[in-house]
Structures are given as C-alpha cells and as structure tokens.
C-alpha cells in the first residue's frame, strides 16, 4: 500500500483520510492524527489500509507515508 513517491521532501507522511489527502509530521501516532483532526477517539473507529485498528493501539500506531485511513462514526439511519 505504501507509495514512496508520495513522500514529501521534509520526510512527512502523505496519507489519505476518508479519501482526502493530508500530511502528518514524521513519527506522528494515530492518536495524535485523530486529535489533530479534532475527533474524540472514543467515538470513532479507524481502518488503516483496509484493516481495523483497535482503539487500544491508537497511541502506538505510527502513521506511515502512503497510509489510507477510513475514520467512521455512528450517524442516524434506518
């Protein structure tokens, strides 16, 4: 899944979150990424490169260049 060509010159990670391109500083954890967006980690679920990331590991997962994230929550529905 990693695409090294997306690597920025300063070494930051270029990632996709819900289809949108974002940049994260090198070494950023998933917990920090979620906090930077402004989300409550207790209210979302995260999929990284099509694999569920357990909430308990948000703090230890390092965001890598080329990662593709889906961040979802519950909304009204039938």
């Amino acid at each position: 899944m990693k695409r090294k060509t997306d690597m920025s010159l300063d070494g930051s990670a270029s990632v996709k979150i819900n289809g949108e391109r974002r940049h994260a500083a090198s070494g950023t954890t998933l917990a920090e990424l979620i906090a930077d967006i402004g989300l409550d980690p207790l209210r979302v679920a995260v999929e990284r490169n099509l694999e569920i990331v357990p909430r308990s590991t948000f703090g230890s997962v390092i965001v890598e260049d080329g990662d593709d994230y889906e961040i979802v929550h519950f909304v009204g529905g039938g």
Binding site: N18, H73, F74, G76
Partner: peptide, 13 residues
C-alpha cells in the same frame, strides 16, 4: 438502529 459513515474531517465539530 444507526448507520456507520465517514466522519467529516473538514468539520469535526
């Protein structure tokens, strides 16, 4: 019942 959808990362509040 509830649905599961992407969060709006441009307007998280």
């Amino acid at each position: 019942t509830v649905a599961v959808r992407r969060v709006n990362i441009s307007d998280p509040n």
